[in-house]
């Protein structure tokens, strides 16, 4: 991590982290009170779903170093599971949730157990192919998935006492649902990250041989990361299908996978706040640039290039270690160095 990164952190560290988190959460919960613009909420919901996806991809790629360029396939697995269960079997939105998570996770398990024999770029190419195969399969299995016409599914509804509250096409309920989903995802990912599993994943990413020599079953743990990453994509897919009320293969194309990877890199590999901020930024920037019409993507590309030039590790990249173990200040660091010098002299 470079000096600038530490500076950024030093500036914010006077405030307790928990307070910051609660504050941000309160603002997000209160936001619709000030801004009820459907379009704004709609963009935020899309960004939120992307945030869950990037957090899931972060488990695979950010922690365990498994480059996945077909992540949209697992997103599709979750979305289509809900769509098919709803259309063919009449399952409701809430009941389908476990099925969506399990089916996407199982999808990841099945694919991962074959593909994880490969490493690095080779794995990336195979996942890329797999993503495309999934999309093409969905496009052609007309009888099950409705082919390119897609499936129209029911929006979620809540049964309050004496009243059925349908979500419909109003963005507000989806905003809160997405916020809740992100919260759950962040809790899951951050707990994993600071556990023995998180340490083992990063060890595998850093040096697979050294990790294996420490008794870490690298194959099993990579599969676990892959599986959890896919299950989270399934979770996002479930939310996406319910919110759109419609699924079709074109939502899960190669560009989506690439966009998710770009978000992960933009935010910084292995960083939870990075994943969320990047998902928000890279969803909102193209929307803000809409007036520029065909120059929109040009500006978007410029932003990415500038970012890679001046902060290649991403917005929050490399901060992970300092969250818990960072020295209080440079002064303490200096004292440490002096103490260490004494150790050496003894």
């Amino acid at each position: 991590m470079n000096r600038r990164g530490i500076g950024l952190y030093q500036a914010t560290k006077k405030i307790p982290r928990r307070a910051v988190n609660v504050f941000i959460l309160l603002i997000l919960f209160a936001l619709p009170l000030f801004d009820r613009n459907q379009y704004h909420l709609e963009v935020l919901v899309s960004a939120g779903i992307f945030a869950i996806l990037v957090l899931g991809l972060n488990v695979m790629t950010g922690y365990c170093g498994l480059l996945n360029l077909g992540y949209a396939a697992f997103f599709a697995a979750g979305a289509y599971t809900y769509a098919i269960l709803n259309v063919r079997f009449g399952w409701s939105f809430w009941v389908s949730l476990p099925a969506c998570i399990i089916s996407a996770g199982a999808f990841g398990l099945a694919f991962g157990s074959c593909a994880l024999r490969l490493k690095g770029d080779y794995l990336a190419v195979v996942t890329l192919g797999f993503g495309e195969i999934t999309r093409i399969a969905l496009n052609n299995m007309d009888s099950l998935t409705g082919g390119p016409n897609g499936l129209t599914v029911a929006h979620p509804a809540l049964w309050l006492p004496h009243k059925r509250l349908a979500f419909g096409i109003n963005s507000l309920p989806y905003y809160y649902l997405t916020l809740l989903a992100i919260l759950v995802t962040v809790i899951i990912v951050s707990r994993l990250s600071s556990s023995r599993f998180g340490r083992a994943w990063i060890a595998i990413k850093e040096d697979e041989v050294a990790a294996a020599c420490l008794g870490i079953h690298t194959g099993k743990l990579k599969l676990l990361a892959f599986c959890i990453g896919s299950a989270l994509a399934g979770f996002a897919g479930w939310l996406f299908a319910g919110k759109q009320g419609f699924v079709s293969p074109e939502s899960f194309d190669f560009i989506t996978s690439i966009m998710l990877t770009a978000m992960l890199v933009f935010g910084g590999m292995g960083s939870i706040p990075g994943a969320i901020v990047a998902a928000l930024a890279l969803t909102i920037i193209p929307e803000v640039l809409r007036p520029l019409q065909q120059y929109r993507m040009f500006f978007f590309g410029t932003v990415m290039i500038v970012m890679m030039l001046f902060r290649p590790q991403g917005l929050f990249g490399g901060v992970r270690i300092f969250e818990e173990f960072r020295p209080e200040s440079e002064r303490i660091r200096q004292e440490e160095d002096e103490a260490l010098g004494e150790d050496l002299r003894q």
Partner: peptide
């Protein structure tokens, strides 16, 4: 010296306990 470069010193040692936890 194949230490896990992006982890803290303490985390490196903690990673070593994986098979004993």
């Amino acid at each position: 010296a194949r230490v896990f470069a992006s982890m803290s010193v303490l985390e490196n040692v903690m990673a070593g306990t994986f098979s004993r936890t």
